[in-house]
Amino acid sequence: MSKLFYMGVGVDVAFQEKRAWIMGAVAILGYAVYLAVVLARSGGGVPLAEVAYIAPLLWTVGGAIAVSIALNIAVAIASPGEADAKDQRDKEIARLGDYTGQSFLVIAAVAALALAMAEADYFWISNAIYLGFVLSAVLGSAVKLAAYRRGFQSW
């Protein structure tokens, strides 16, 4: 566990590992803000499906992209020598993380399909897809971080 949570002495974090941290953290934060806004709007007795969710959704997605770019630039400035360094191990770990994270995109697509067929409100269809994107990013980041910290064998 200490390996996973950076409690060891002389911890050395690869540039792509920092990027995985940023992606996971920003995805969670963006979705948390979105949830807080939507739940607050339904607080006054408005049914969830009737809440104006589109603007918060677009703003949190746009905000997450902007924050993520800003943090990536900040990390690159902090360690210019390693900026955007990517080797064979980084690529293999990225592939593993993206591949694993993709499972949630498929689940979200199937859920959205089922909701559309059941003629559910647009709110639920949009939110199923949005949640799928968030979970995909979070799972992908978690798998990458675990691979960086605990080890990774490509065979």
Partner: peptide, 22 residues
């Protein structure tokens, strides 16, 4: 050898098996 320092650390500690090329 054209990899990052962190990859050398991972290889040394047996946390990553490099390609035959590396």
């Amino acid at each position: 050898i054209g990899v990052t320092r962190q990859t050398v650390i991972a290889i040394e500690k047996g946390r990553y098996s490099p390609s035959l090329e590396t």
